[in-house]
């Protein structure tokens, strides 16, 4: 199933921590899997569950949210909100037939380029193992409407 399969992953990275970790990985010339496509938000708290569902319904095989470590949020507590939303959304994903492991939330600070690399590599492999996400057309419509 996973033969020749190259997963597509949307990364929602917060401007102050994880996006900067990805910048640092770049300036440090670390190499990692090319599967994650980053959408920058100011805070992981801006990541609307609808955006995640939108990603899954438009071809994403996985979604990775990167925020600041607990207590380090640039906006005090947006990362906690992301945490709560993610936990709830995972339950909903199951109901749509989407494996909850396809949604991952990680705290990666601006200095943790190595961690960013490892998380991206590991998550890409994990999604490769899960195989492509096939949403039934009727479910897909429901996901879009959700």
């Amino acid at each position: 199933m996973s033969d020749g399969f190259n997963p597509l992953i949307v990364g929602f990275f917060c401007n102050w921590c994880t996006y900067l970790a990805a910048d640092l990985a770049g300036t440090s010339r670390m190499k990692y899997a090319p599967n994650v496509r980053v959408v920058r938000t100011m805070c992981s708290g801006r990541v609307d569950p609808q955006m995640i569902l939108w990603a899954f319904s438009h071809g994403a095989d996985g979604v990775l949210i990167g925020g600041c470590h607990p207590g380090d949020c640039h906006y005090q507590e947006g990362n906690y909100k992301a945490l709560r939303r993610t936990a709830l959304l995972r339950k909903m994903l199951t109901q749509f037939g989407i494996e909850p492991e396809r949604l991952r939330l990680e705290w990666i600070s601006a200095s943790e380029a190595e961690r960013l690399r490892d998380v991206v590599n590991e998550f890409s492999e994990q999604i490769r193992g899960l195989g492509p996400l096939h949403l039934r057309p009727d479910v897909r419509e429901e996901v879009v409407a959700a």
Binding site: V10, V39, T41, M51, W54, A55, H58, G59
Partner: peptide, 15 residues
């Protein structure tokens, strides 16, 4: 970071 902008961006990286 309007919804339209972010949703369009998500769709853009995927399709």
């Amino acid at each position: 970071f309007r919804d339209e902008q972010l949703f369009a961006e998500v769709e853009g990286v995927l399709v």
